[in-house]
Write a protein that binds this DNA or RNA. Structure first.
Lengths: 277, 277
DNA sequence: AACCGATGGTTCAAATAATGAACCGAATAG
DNA sequence: CTATTCGGTTCATTATTTGAACCATCGGTT
């Protein structure tokens, strides 16, 4: 997936595909004029491109306003992808174990352009409260544990590009100073794990470990998210141990390899206190 | 989805998207040259288009042969589609009930170009044997109950186009004579339900009812598939009654409407014997 | 080793397809 | 009734796509 976006003029196919990125959980239907405005393309161009997307079932038009929404073709293609590369299934198996062992919500997300999107998750049913997740939920790179884990193991130009944009504060705890975030990354690299305490959702204490592909590129992260109020030294130790193991198994089972620089797991390591505050 | 394919020259975006259609359960990885041959496009064109698809995560290259396979973007987009239009979830709810009531495998598939692709399915666990299904399994229109149900409620030009192509016999029971199939369609239209006995898999007795969208276009079918050996008058009656009800509810809950010509369900209708033999 | 026929990838002039300002008719708002 | 919106359409201008030919590399055969 592309850490290769702004390369000269976009091809026509790319323009069509990029239109799909404006659909989200929050905005599932978009009209022609809106789409033209959002994309900065000419209305006629958008009209023709969306027509082509519609011919293939990638979008469909609905209702009186003739608004567009994502089409049914994705269900078929996602099933084919999952059959060829059962990422979701394999990740879910690890997450299920991880949630049982830790008693907390675990999830895995994939890098998609400049954000992470949630691939799948697993709840524990040990407590009356738990951190909630959603399919295809978007996680920002700068404000989440998973995002920091990914940043720490991504190429410097990519990191710089992300951190040079305005960083929105999701909570009062969110770190929005690029320099402060850059300073965190070496620690994360050394530990092979990132933390975030209340940076995304106020009361969520999150640990995250990067996941790598066959070329040792970081493609996403596996994470455990617990309520801040429930975090103890013991829980932290359990999460850190089990998450590291689960993430390593996941990278392996997906056919990937951690980079040589990635720290080896040592079971006798003492749990690490947060270094984010 | 498109019953609108062969309209003059394809746009560039369409060419790119059509490349995705060569990936299937059987062929999940395709090399550049193969793809060029399959599509009839120039190798350089395919190379550039696949590069654009790869930039957006729609395909990825893998291994030594640099072969392409479908990318992770579909997982995200499918999740967004399902969130916006929970077809799969709603259909599965109906299928689960349907399988419980009938004791047999039920499934739903969507029209995708000139074939049906399976959306989801539900097994009953009443018997030791059952008809097996798979996600994104492809069903031909001429040789399956679901396909006949769709044909019977599709525009004549579309039906003619399908039946004018060579019809492969999946089993000795498959009807491959276009005229014979055309003759079946009025009966299916009258009953609002199609049958297929051993036409696709040797020992499968299948009933199918079309599903319609908001414009009363047929978009797919819901079906119950039982082993031929298990079919009795009683089971047939149960399947016909429950399938008709489930399909009607499904069309409704998806926001669709049967066309005016579609037969109303009358609970006192006597079960129908097969008219396919 | 030399050769063959594959493969993935690249080039550049020629040909084609994409583009966008302006325009429509319809629906809505003031 | 006027003024904006909307989705959709047109067509001369323009910029992009195209494809034959070209590499370099790989694996098998002779």
């Amino acid at each position: 997936m592309g850490r290769t976006q702004p390369e000269g003029p976009m091809g026509t196919a790319s323009k069509a595909l990029s239109l799909l990125n404006y659909f989200s959980r929050a905005q599932s239907q978009i009209g022609l004029s809106d789409l033209a405005r959002l994309s900065g393309m000419n209305k006629a161009t958008v009209y023709r491109l969306m027509g082509e997307l519609a011919d293939h079932g990638f979008v469909e038009q609905v209702g009186a306003g003739r608004e567009y929404r994502l089409g049914p073709a994705f269900l078929r293609l996602a099933a084919l992808r999952e059959k060829a590369v059962p990422m979701r299934e394999l990740a879910l198996a690890e997450l299920t174990k991880l949630s049982e062992l830790t008693g907390e919500t675990s999830h895995m997300s994939l890098l998609n352009g400049e954000v992470l999107s949630n691939l799948t998750y697993s709840y524990a049913h040990k407590h009356g409260t738990m951190v909630m997740m959603e399919d295809a939920e978007v996680l920002e790179l700068h404000s989440t544990g998973s995002g920091l884990a990914v940043l720490a193991f991504s190429p410097a130009p990519f990191v710089d590009a992300i951190l040079s944009k305005p960083l929105v504060a999701r909570t009062p705890e969110t770190v929005t100073d690029p320099a402060a975030i850059q300073a965190l990354l070496p620690k994360i690299r050394k530990r092979g794990m990132a933390w975030s305490i209340g940076g995304y959702e106020r009361d969520v204490y999150s640990h995250a470990v990067p996941i790598f592909d066959a070329g040792s590129q970081c493609i996403g992260a596996m994470a455990v998210a617990a309520p801040v109020s429930r975090m103890t030294d013991e829980l932290r130790a359990t999460i850190q141990t089990e998450l590291a193991l689960a993430a390593r198994r996941t990278t392996r089972v997906l056919g990937g390899f951690p980079p040589d620089s990635f720290p080896k797991i040592n079971p006798t390591d003492s749990p690490v206190e947060s270094e984010l505050t």
